[in-house]
Simulated assay, not measured.
Amino acid sequence: MIQKAKLFGFGSYFEGVERPADIDLLIVHEDTSADSCHFAISCKQLLRMAISAAHVTILSVGEESDQRFIERSTAIFLGPLHSENAQEEIERFAALLLRPFDRQLKLRIRHYQNLRRIAKSSSF
Rank of each mutant, 00 (worst) to 15 (best):
S12P: 03
R117T: 12
I109M: 14
G62D: 14
T57H: 03
A53P: 01
N114G: 07
Y112C: 08
I58F: 06
S12G: 08
I23P: 00
D31G: 09
L107C: 14
N114S: 11
R19N: 15
L59E: 11
D24I: 03
E18Y: 13
A50L: 04
I2R: 09
L25R: 01
A53G: 10
D102G: 08
S52W: 02
L59R: 15
L59H: 13
F8H: 05
K106Q: 14
C43I: 06
K106A: 08
I76L: 15
A95D: 09
S123R: 10
T74E: 15
H55Y: 06
H82C: 07
G11A: 11
E84N: 12
A34H: 06
I76T: 05
L26Y: 03
A40W: 00
I109K: 01
L7E: 00
F124R: 08
I70M: 06
E18A: 15
L97C: 09
S42H: 08
I76F: 01
T74Q: 15
A86Q: 02
L115S: 12
I70L: 06
S73T: 15
L81D: 01
C37S: 10
E64R: 02
K6D: 03
S12D: 07
A34G: 00
R68Y: 06
A40F: 00
R48N: 11
T74R: 13
F124L: 09
V56K: 02
G9T: 02
S122I: 05
G9C: 06
F124A: 03
L115G: 13
S12R: 04
A94E: 09
F39S: 01
Q3A: 10
S83L: 08
C37D: 06
E18W: 09
I51W: 06
L107G: 10
E91P: 00
N114K: 12
E91F: 04
I27R: 01
P100D: 13
V17G: 05
S36Y: 03
A34W: 05
F93R: 01
S36L: 08
H82K: 12
R116T: 08
L25D: 02
I90E: 00
I70A: 02
D24M: 05
F14K: 09
F10D: 05
K44I: 05
A75Y: 01
S33V: 02
E30N: 08
T57Q: 10
V56D: 04
F10E: 04
D35S: 12
L7G: 00
Y112R: 14
L81P: 02
K106P: 00
V28K: 01
G79H: 11
F10V: 04
I51F: 09
D22N: 15
L26I: 11
R108I: 11
R99K: 15
S36T: 09
Q104K: 14
L78D: 03
E30D: 09
L96S: 11
T57G: 00
R116E: 10
Q104S: 14
K44Y: 06
E89I: 03
A95P: 00
Q87V: 10
S73V: 00
S12W: 03
E64I: 08
Q67W: 07
E89D: 06
G62I: 03
K106M: 14
A53C: 08
E64S: 07
